[in-house]
Simulated assay, not measured.
Amino acid sequence: MKSLFVYTVVLALNSIAIIAPSYASARTNDGKVPHIDSNTQFPPTKWGIFRHTFRLHIPQNSKAVTQLIVKIPANIIISNNIQDIDAVDEKGQKINTNVTVTGKRILLFFAKPVAPNTKFDIDLNRIKRQNLGNGSVYSFSVREVGIDAEIPIGVASFHTY
C-alpha cells in the first residue's frame, strides 16, 4: 500500500512539472517591428467600468514610432473623454500625446517620436463591455518615422470567463 502511495505521489509531481511550463516571453529586444508585450484588465470583472492596459515594445532595431492606432472591439464601449486614455512610460511619466477617438478607432499622435528600445503602457480607462460574448480582441497598428503606411503590429485579447 505504501509503495502505491509513493508511486502516485511521484507520478503526480512529474505531471505537474510537465504541465506547468514557464510562460516567459520569447521576444527579444533585437526585433525590427514594434509589438504588444502584454495586456491586463483591472479590476478583473465581467461587468462594470474597468481599465484595459497594453504594453507596447519598440525594439532597438526598429524605427521611432510617430503614431499608434488602436481598433476597439465591437463589444467594448470606450469613453469619449480623451482624458481617459493615457500613454505612460516605464518610469510612470506620461508621454505627450494628442488623442483622437473616431468611432471604434483611437489614434495616438506622439508629440515627439517614441524612440527605439522603449516600452510603454497605453491605459484605456472607464471602458465598459457591451455584452459578454466570447471576449474582446483589440488590433494595433503603428506609423514609423519615414514610413507613410499603417504597419499592423498585433492583437491583444481579453477572454470572458
Rank of each mutant, 00 (worst) to 15 (best):
I49Q: 14
T53C: 02
T53Y: 00
R143L: 01
V6P: 00
Y161V: 10
S139L: 11
N134E: 15
R143Y: 03
H159A: 09
T53N: 06
T45R: 15
N125C: 09
S136A: 13
P116H: 06
I122S: 01
N61E: 07
P73A: 02
S15N: 12
L107K: 08
V65G: 02
I69G: 00
N14E: 08
T100L: 13
K104I: 12
D121E: 10
V33R: 14
E144H: 03
T45A: 15
N80L: 14
I18N: 10
I58A: 00
V142T: 13
R143V: 05
G135I: 15
D89G: 02
G133R: 07
A26S: 13
A64S: 03
H35K: 10
G146S: 05
L4P: 05
N125Q: 15
D86K: 11
L13S: 11
H57T: 14
G154Q: 08
V137K: 12
R105F: 01
N96V: 09
A115Q: 15
N131Y: 14
K112I: 09
T28Y: 09
S62M: 01
E90V: 13
Q60W: 03
R143W: 02
I82G: 04
I18D: 13
P21I: 12
V145R: 05
S38Y: 09
V114I: 12
F50G: 00
K91T: 14
I36S: 01
K91W: 13
V142L: 04
T100G: 00
P43M: 10
I78G: 00
L56C: 05
W47E: 09
P43I: 14
G103V: 14
I147A: 03
K119M: 04
N134Q: 15
V101D: 02
T160P: 06
N98H: 08
N125F: 11
L124S: 09
P44F: 04
